[in-house]
Design a protein around this nucleic acid. Structure first.
Length: 217
DNA sequence: CACCAGGGTGGTT
DNA sequence: AACCACCATGGT
């Protein structure tokens, strides 16, 4: 069923190609900046950091907080996010740099990320998947809503269950990364803002079969 | 004008 | 454990 959803979304929206970046750190920084924010605005902030030469742990740990805030205003919540970027950079430096993080096994890396102030489950999993290419499914509001509708009328399983079932079904970071991106594209495009639109998502508008046949696919 | 975007934290019940 | 207010800019 996860494979079917991936296949259909792929057919409808095409490859999303997330995450455009030059380094792991850039993705980690972007993941914090994009929290509850349109990617366009977060991306502009990433570019400003890059132009200012601030996209390194060394600079991020030492740059005055006010200057950091100024560089990322376009991403919104800039006071909170500036502190989060600082906490992230401090943490990466303490760990010994991104190279060391790269050698962590996935469970340890996930625990490490969750321990950083300002990084919760979704941001941690985004970083695991897109920066470190670990086979991880990012459970966000769109994913919950979509799979709740696909499972209708059954209640949606807990995040951890949805996550592990999806990871087991799709296996590769490439598949799981693409699915997350596609689910967001789908949410933006059509069904996302329409409450309980079973017709829209499961049948005509988005090319889905009915829920029953999809669940058994 | 209101509403939302690739969340997480801290405080209250 | 389940809510809740809050954070703030830029596009539609």
């Amino acid at each position: 069923m996860f494979a079917t959803v991936l296949e259909r979304l792929l057919g409808r929206y095409g490859r999303q190609g997330w995450w455009p970046a030059d380094s792991e750190l850039e993705i980690m920084v972007g993941a914090v900046l994009v929290q509850r924010t349109a990617w366009r605005n977060a991306a502009a902030a990433v570019e400003r950091l890059k132009s200012a030469g601030a996209l390194s742990t060394n600079v991020l740990t030492t740059i005055p907080l006010g200057r950091l805030e100024h560089l990322i205003t376009s991403a919104g919540f800039f006071r909170v996010k500036a502190k989060r970027l600082r906490a992230l950079a401090d943490s990466v430096a303490r760990a010994g740099g991104v190279t060391v993080l790269r050698s962590y096994p996935t469970p340890r890396l996930r625990a490490y990320l969750l321990d950083v102030h300002g990084i919760g489950p979704e941001t941690a999993d985004s970083i695991l998947g897109y920066a470190f290419e670990r086979p991880v499914f990012v459970v966000d509001a769109y994913a919950r809503r979509l799979f709740a509708r696909l499972a209708y009328p059954d209640p949606l399983a807990a995040d951890a269950t949805l996550k592990s079932e999806c990871e087991h079904a799709l296996k590769t970071a490439s598949n799981l990364n693409e699915l997350h991106a596609l689910i967001i594209a789908h949410g933006r495009a059509s069904c996302g803002s329409i409450p309980r639109c079973l017709d829209c998502c499961l049948k005509s508008a988005c090319g889905y079969a009915r829920a029953e046949s999809l669940a058994s696919a």
